[in-house]
């Protein structure tokens, strides 16, 4: 697995897309920091970009990479190594190379502008963490979708739809349900709903720092318990990790039976 990881990582990190991805984050965070002196504001803007773009890019690249390396995967499948190792290696190669482009794209401007010595350090670290986790989650989901769909158009379509679903539609449905049933106690429903969407969960992890004062304005005991101490952060991180493991698990399960 590590060997496959090594070569696919070298392959991807040298590719032009890694550079473009890095460049995008580098330029946008540099210019945001340069234009606006207010670091907290920049963090909010970057949060919006990351929550939108990291899942999208990981999804598209995941599907694309899987389909593009199909023939090579077949060559590898004829080698005396386990299937699992081949694809886990490729998955890691992709998600780690994307993550590194992303992390460096933010880290360098942050370091240049000395953000790590301001009170925004927690927010900055949370952003890096959340962006990386989202990359890991959505490239795993993309791999799974690509594996399950021989038809590339269908695979791409499904993946993009899933992204759109998690990024926008899910919240819309959620809000609709909340407003329809607002006579009922919805506290637990609200929290549990957030858990089933990794993008929402990541957002909440950032909110726990950024908007804790507003979150504490809600009366419910469950909210207060969740947002008021480390419990919320721990649960969020734990569930995000489950969100990485789950698609990988389903991927590996399907892989066993897959015909190439």
């Amino acid at each position: 697995m590590l060997k496959i990881f090594k070569y696919s990582f070298f392959d991807l990190i040298r590719g032009k897309w890694s550079l473009i991805y890095f460049g995008f984050f580098f330029i946008s965070s540099m210019s945001l920091l340069y234009i606006s002196g207010d670091v907290a504001k920049v963090i909010i803007s970057l949060m919006n970009i990351i929550l939108l773009l990291n899942p999208l890019i990981a999804t598209i690249f995941g599907v694309m990479y899987f389909y593009n390396s199909r023939e090579f995967s077949e060559l590898l499948l004829a080698q005396p190594i386990k299937r699992r190792d081949i694809f886990l290696g490729q998955y890691l190669g992709l998600s780690v190379s994307l993550s590194i482009s992303f992390i460096l794209g933010l880290l360098i401007p942050f370091a240049i502008f000395g953000i790590f010595s301001t009170n925004q350090v927690t927010n900055a670290v949370t952003l890096l963490f959340v962006g990386t986790i989202l990359t890991l989650i959505f490239s795993a989901i993309a791999f799974y979708i690509a594996l399950r769909n021989e038809n590339k158009i269908k695979g791409f379509g499904t993946a993009i739809f899933l992204w759109l679903f998690f990024a926008v539609i899910y919240d819309g449905i959620f809000l609709l349900l909340l407003m329809t049933f607002n006579e009922y106690p919805l506290e637990k429903f609200a929290l549990v709903s957030m858990i089933f969407n990794p993008i929402d969960l990541s957002r909440i992890l950032i909110l726990l720092n950024l908007d804790i004062s507003a979150l504490m304005g809600y009366t419910g005991a469950v909210f207060n318990q969740f947002f008021g101490n480390m419990l919320g952060i721990s649960i969020s991180i734990f569930v995000l990790l489950i969100w990485i493991v789950t698609p990988i698990f389903f991927f590996l399960r399907s892989l066993k039976k897959k015909d190439f």
């Binding site: 919006n48 926008v168 919240d171 429903f189 929290l191 908007d211 979150l215 809600y218």
Partner: peptide, 20 residues
């Protein structure tokens, strides 16, 4: 306005849907 009506929706703060 939404949060006034449905306080639980506070968990949607800063989401893309809300921005829209």
């Amino acid at each position: 306005y939404v949060v006034n009506q449905t306080p639980e929706s506070i968990v949607l703060m800063r989401s893309l849907f809300i921005d829209i």
